[in-house]
Computed example of a mutant assay.
Amino acid sequence: MNTQLQVTDLRVHYPIRKGVFRRQVGAVRAVDGVSFGIAEGETFGLVGESGCGKSTLARAILRLQQPTGGTVQFRHRDGGEIDVTSLPAPAMRALRRDIQIVFQDPYSSLNPRLSIGMTLAEPVRAIEGVGSRERRARVAEALAAVGLPMEAARRFPHEFSGGQRQRIAIARALITRPRFVVLDEPVSALDVSIRAQVLNLLVDMQRERALTYLFVSHDLSVVRYLCNRVAVMYLGRIVELGEVDRMFAAPRHPYTRSLLAAIPRPQPRKIRPPLGVVGEPPGPLSVAGGCAFRSRCPHATGHCAAEPPVLRDLGNGDLVACHHAETLPATPRFVAA
């Protein structure tokens, strides 16, 4: 299958400046050398604790956040590849037709001063420059696709529920008929009763329009339902990447094991594997050499402190950044609730 998006050594560093002359004395490495590829029609999951760099990585891929280094190659409609990180502003605006995003909070991602019709029409006006008649037709098509009536175009965001607002946000992302969509925790702000509706809508849209998704989330049960492959991030780096079913059945990195062991279970009396991880992640400025997870890992050794692990292939496309991945003790099968 063709690779639609290839991320290579992507970095986002925030400089720290002090003194009268504002000299740089360090940097926060929000994203630090991340590489992966996403195939056409795939849903690729990105998970990790809050502050691990998931959303920053997603925004850097779309150039909503300027990367410090690395490349993002995107396969265009004509089959050619484009380096997103080096595109000038006019070309980047044109590429917005093919790559879109659905933000986490449906209450803040919609302009309260614009009607829904104006909100949906703005992308096709700004990016494609279509006329008013075509814009109205595209708005009606987008609303119908997410199950909302045309009369919703005359209303304003405060007149809708959270689930309806997120449907509108999805309609706005799809109105330019993109090929690649970033979903930045699209259901985390919604009630549990509404999440399934939005997730099923995303699945239906992907099937009907041959979309490719990058799904950012901290809800592992949702990730298992929606994604084909998943990458686990810790302090700006990917520590494990592989097929969803395989990773849930037999995680290879201690951090992945702790995330899966923390999933709530419907049988609280049943014996569960210990979390095996304690404490909080180190601060972004206190990460020195070696493995960044070693201070919380029950399997850490002197090798972990001396040398940072690299993301290596253990077979079948499973990538793990751990010196002891082959020798860790076996764990029970993890099943998402």
Rank of each mutant, 00 (worst) to 15 (best):
N2C: 07
D9F: 02
R11G: 02
R11Q: 10
R11K: 15
R22F: 01
A27S: 15
A30Q: 06
V31I: 06
F36V: 01
T43I: 12
V47M: 05
S50V: 13
S55P: 11
L57D: 04
R59N: 05
A60C: 04
L62D: 09
Q65R: 02
T68F: 02
G70T: 12
V72C: 01
Q73P: 04
Q73R: 07
R77T: 05
R77F: 00
R77Q: 06
G79F: 00
V84H: 02
T85S: 14
L87Q: 13
L87M: 14
A91N: 12
R93Y: 08
I99N: 01
I101A: 14
V102F: 03
F103E: 01
Q104E: 10
Q104H: 07
P106F: 13
S108A: 15
N111K: 07
L114G: 08
M118S: 15
L120W: 03
R125C: 02
R125D: 08
A126K: 05
I127S: 05
I127G: 01
G131Y: 03
S132L: 11
E134G: 05
R135Q: 15
R136L: 04
A140R: 07
E141H: 07
P149G: 10
M150H: 15
F156K: 08
E159W: 12
F160N: 08
S161G: 11
R165E: 08
A173H: 09
P178H: 12
D184A: 13
D184T: 12
P186C: 15
S188V: 03
D204I: 02
D204Q: 11
Q206S: 03
T212R: 06
D219R: 09
N228L: 00
M233V: 11
L235Q: 06
R237N: 13
I238V: 14
V239Y: 14
L241A: 05
G242N: 04
V244Q: 09
R246P: 07
P268C: 14
R272C: 00
P273L: 04
P273R: 01
L275W: 09
L275S: 07
G276H: 12
P282D: 06
S286Q: 12
V287Q: 12
A288M: 05
A288I: 08
C291I: 02
A292R: 02
A292D: 05
F293E: 01
R296Q: 01
G302C: 08
A305N: 03
E307I: 02
P308H: 10
L311V: 08
R312T: 14
L319R: 07
H324V: 11
A325I: 13
T327R: 08
A336M: 10
